[in-house]
Amino acid sequence: MSASRSTKSKADIPDQSLSFLTLRHTKSSYAPRYWPSWVWLFLWRLMALLPLALSRAVGAALGLLMMVTNAKRRKIARINLEMCFPKLSLRERERLLRRHFIVSGQSYFDLAYLAWASERRILRKTHIRGLEQYQDLRGRNIILLAPHCVGMNFGGAVIARERAQFSMVKLQRNPVVNALLNRGRMRFGCFLLSRQQGLRPVIRGLKQGLAFYYLPDEDFGQRQSVFVPFFGVPTATLTTLGRLARLTNALVVPCFTRLLPGGRGYEVILKPPLEDFPNGDRTHDAARMNAVIEEGLRHMPEQYLWTFKLFKTRPGHAPSPYG
């Protein structure tokens, strides 16, 4: 199903006291040190004028260039793939690595498409599975469980058309980069909080009836984390999802966004809400979250952000595998 006409109303506008981010530029963003970034931003905007199939071809070339030139990220991804897919042969893992960098490069150019292409063009290239059951949950508090895939910004933006929604982001040091990222993320009305604002505004937003697009699958160290399996690897995993669901009586809806090959756009997959979640045991809930994410990624393993240091925190303070 293609993206539907938005059903949001004025009642969906959140309380402004939540201090959501805005797209206003500060004076510092025009400082000379950011002028090269403005040039790149202009070039990125031109990419939005190209047919998606053509920009995807350029993006694939960019991804392969990144794989060749960025030794650090290439090493991290290789270590992650070896830990998560030990049964694959070296050749199979190298093929998966190559596919990952290709879709990563394509997704970078898709940021321009999301930010500046017409709404009609974007929705024509967006296919949503499970939209009807998501719409049937109107009136319930919702947490969208979304892993860090290459299409995460695209999916979070488009789903916000269906219901008032907010997310939490890590701001970049470069304000011009923030302008590009957040323009796309906020394109269809998704409100944004900075990660530094903490969880209090998240709880308030959920209790106001806004859906929360949540990406919890990063290694934040042992504090607030437990070690549970992810692709068979003991992984420092946040327990926040279960706590948020309990405090706000929210349903957890897994949400996966898949970059489709060629110029076909994106597929957003909304799964049924998790049953019996949370169950009160934070280790059990964290393991359940990882299992749900893993099951969805097995259908598109190349699209996960394997360049993250997913396993830098090890049980028993063992050394990081990344050196």
Results as ranks from 00 to 15, higher is better:
residue 20 F to C: 09
residue 296 G to H: 00
residue 255 C to T: 10
residue 58 V to R: 11
residue 38 W to D: 12
residue 78 R to D: 11
residue 23 L to Q: 11
residue 264 R to Q: 13
residue 34 Y to T: 07
residue 230 F to W: 05
residue 40 W to F: 14
residue 61 A to G: 12
residue 38 W to M: 09
residue 177 V to K: 01
residue 114 L to S: 04
residue 285 D to F: 10
residue 163 R to L: 08
residue 62 L to W: 03
residue 103 V to A: 08
residue 130 G to M: 00
residue 305 L to G: 07
residue 48 A to Y: 01
residue 76 I to F: 09
residue 209 G to L: 10
residue 37 S to K: 03
residue 30 Y to H: 10
residue 147 P to K: 02
residue 68 V to H: 15
residue 184 G to T: 04
residue 207 K to D: 00
residue 26 T to C: 08
residue 46 L to N: 04
residue 45 R to I: 13
residue 5 R to P: 13
residue 204 R to S: 13
residue 167 S to W: 09
residue 207 K to C: 00
residue 273 P to R: 07
residue 156 G to Y: 00
residue 293 I to R: 09
residue 287 A to P: 06
residue 97 L to V: 12
residue 237 T to F: 00
residue 86 P to N: 05
residue 182 N to M: 14
residue 211 A to G: 13
residue 187 R to V: 06
residue 229 P to N: 04
residue 17 S to R: 14
residue 49 L to K: 12
residue 153 N to C: 04
residue 1 M to E: 15
residue 9 S to I: 08
residue 320 S to L: 12
residue 172 Q to H: 15
residue 57 A to K: 12
residue 90 L to A: 13
residue 235 T to Y: 01
residue 131 L to N: 11
residue 172 Q to E: 15
residue 269 I to E: 08
residue 188 F to A: 05
residue 156 G to P: 00
residue 285 D to M: 07
residue 283 T to W: 05
residue 184 G to N: 11
residue 99 R to K: 15
residue 56 R to I: 12
residue 16 Q to A: 15
residue 178 N to Y: 08
residue 32 P to H: 00
residue 170 K to G: 12
residue 221 G to V: 09
residue 94 E to H: 04
residue 80 N to E: 03
residue 52 L to D: 03
residue 210 L to P: 12
residue 275 E to S: 11
residue 23 L to V: 09
residue 24 R to C: 07
residue 65 L to N: 10
residue 180 L to V: 04
residue 299 H to K: 14
residue 231 F to N: 05
residue 129 R to Y: 02
residue 24 R to P: 08
residue 8 K to Q: 14
residue 64 L to I: 07
residue 270 L to M: 01
residue 27 K to D: 09
residue 67 M to E: 13
residue 280 G to H: 03
residue 192 L to C: 10
residue 207 K to A: 00
residue 250 A to R: 08
residue 197 Q to H: 01
residue 236 A to M: 08
residue 226 V to K: 10
residue 97 L to G: 02
residue 200 R to S: 10
residue 142 I to T: 04
residue 276 D to W: 06
residue 73 R to Q: 15
residue 209 G to T: 03
residue 3 A to G: 15
residue 165 Q to T: 12
residue 116 W to A: 10
residue 155 G to R: 00
residue 308 F to H: 15
residue 111 L to C: 12
residue 168 M to I: 05
residue 197 Q to K: 01
residue 287 A to F: 09
residue 183 R to F: 02
residue 303 Q to E: 03
residue 197 Q to S: 04
residue 316 G to L: 02
residue 155 G to P: 00
residue 4 S to E: 13
residue 43 L to W: 05
residue 235 T to M: 04
residue 224 Q to P: 06
residue 10 K to C: 14
residue 284 H to F: 08
residue 157 A to G: 01
residue 198 G to N: 01
residue 179 A to R: 15
residue 225 S to T: 13
residue 283 T to P: 07
residue 29 S to G: 05
residue 251 L to H: 06
residue 245 A to V: 10
